[in-house]
Design a protein around this nucleic acid. Structure first.
Length: 392
DNA sequence: AATTCGGGGTA
DNA sequence: TACCCAGAATT
């Protein structure tokens, strides 16, 4: 079934030939059928590659279908509101991907007449398109030999070449890109690019790689050296910073007070309840000042927690006398991000003076039925559902 | 070169 | 728990 290997079987040239062709044929025969592999539409491939950044295939699949149903082509995406795009992205994480993709779609309409550029430099110039995504779309959609080096390819190549340097260093990464670029010259780019990633996803996995099932193990230097399990090397990660988030459930006759986060930074553009974020060690340092009193089974805020909540409340209702309010905790969530950890506590102010006016320039008041129409981070989804369940 | 960006599956 | 995932932008 495989074509004959050239006679110079022990040379580097034959090894490269083997990597390119054996792997390509293996991909043709064994690849998984994934939604974005059923199309040749560059837009759809671009959307999939954007969603797949740092995100697992199984996670992406439902989002991919829903997104393309809502935004079937670049023009539809460009014509939509950013908030609608974020809503489709809700729960997927890394929300700057959604906002960049939306901006990029508008640029494609403006600059390129609505057609996705088949030129690597023009495509790379779009927001949210980095070296990987450019290589992936160029090779898969336009059959151009541009390397697409993701986490799978880093691992596969580090093992094939037995590279013991940390792969998350730019110099090592560039070295791997050069290697792949060379292999691509002898390959069908759309096939070989996906073959490398597929091998990493299915066979050459991070832990317990299935070397026995690998079509190119005879070309793998790590397998020969017995180091496959230990590769690739990565730089150690720093511990997460701990933060406390104090949020408010302010429900008036009109509805619930909500606000949109700033466009850039953490959870940019997503909605949240009025909140105050502070370093965790700022709270637990003073001995007993931050401890909360128990009253009637519900925790009531005291000390610095109460002061922070009061600041927050004054932002929502500027110029309103709130001295007498008590804050009753109605929900609590821990949420882990890549580089920080949130401990969120949601409080309901009790005893608000009648006629308190919400600052509508910073906040919006929406009725309960409309909460679901806004894009929320996962942690606020959980908090709100918890609060609604408690408050009925 | 190092940080900052989500969220979830898995051992 | 710790790791890692079809990474990009910012500093």
């Amino acid at each position: 079934m495989n074509p004959p290997v050239p006679s110079m079987a022990s040379t580097d040239l034959a090894r490269e030939w083997s990597i390119v062709h054996i792997l390509s044929m293996w991909y043709r025969d064994h690849h998984r059928r994934l939604p974005w592999r059923e199309t040749r539409d560059p837009y759809r491939i671009w959307v999939s590659e954007t969603m797949l950044q740092q995100t697992r295939v199984e996670t992406v699949i439902p989002y991919y279908h829903a997104f393309l149903e809502r935004f079937p082509d670049v023009a539809a995406l460009a014509a939509s509101d950013e908030e609608a795009v974020l809503k489709c992205w809700q729960g997927l994480g890394y929300y700057s991907r959604a906002r960049n993709l939306h901006r990029a779609a508008r640029l494609v309409v403006e600059r390129h007449g609505g057609r996705i550029p088949d030129d690597p430099r023009a495509f790379l110039a779009l927001p949210g398109v980095g070296a990987y995504t450019a290589g992936a779309v160029m090779s898969i959609a336009f059959h151009r030999p541009i390397p697409a080096v993701d986490g799978n390819v880093l691992r596969v190549v580090a093992r094939l070449e037995n590279l013991c340097d940390p792969v998350d260093h730019p110099t090592v990464r560039r070295r791997i890109e050069r290697l792949v670029e060379g292999w691509l010259q002898q390959a069908e780019p759309a096939v070989f690019t996906q073959a490398l990633m597929e091998l990493g996803a299915v066979v050459c996995t991070p832990r317990s790689p299935r070397c026995g099932a690998c079509p190119v193990r005879s070309a793998c230097r790590a397998h020969r050296a017995g180091t496959a399990e230990d590769l690739p090397k990565r730089a150690p990660k720093r511990p997460r910073r701990q933060k406390v988030v104090l949020a408010l459930w302010c429900e008036t006759g009109e509805g619930v007070v909500v606000e949109q986060r700033p466009a850039d930074g953490l959870l940019g553009g997503m909605w949240q309840l009025p909140a105050h974020e502070l370093d965790a060690d700022a709270l637990d340092a003073p001995s007993d000042a931050g401890r909360d009193a128990e009253s009637g089974g519900a925790a009531e805020a005291a000390g610095p927690v109460r002061r922070a909540l009061m600041d927050c409340l004054q932002r929502v209702f500027p110029g309103t006398a709130c001295h007498a309010v008590r804050f009753v905790e109605v929900a609590r969530e821990r949420h882990v991000f890549t580089h920080l950890e949130w401990s969120v506590r949601l409080f309901r102010p009790e005893g608000m003076p009648a006629g308190a006016r919400v600052d509508r320039t910073r906040f919006r008041v929406v009725c309960r039925d409309e909460l679901g129409g806004l894009p929320w981070p996962r942690v606020y989804e959980k908090l709100i559902s918890g609060a609604l369940q408690m408050l009925i």
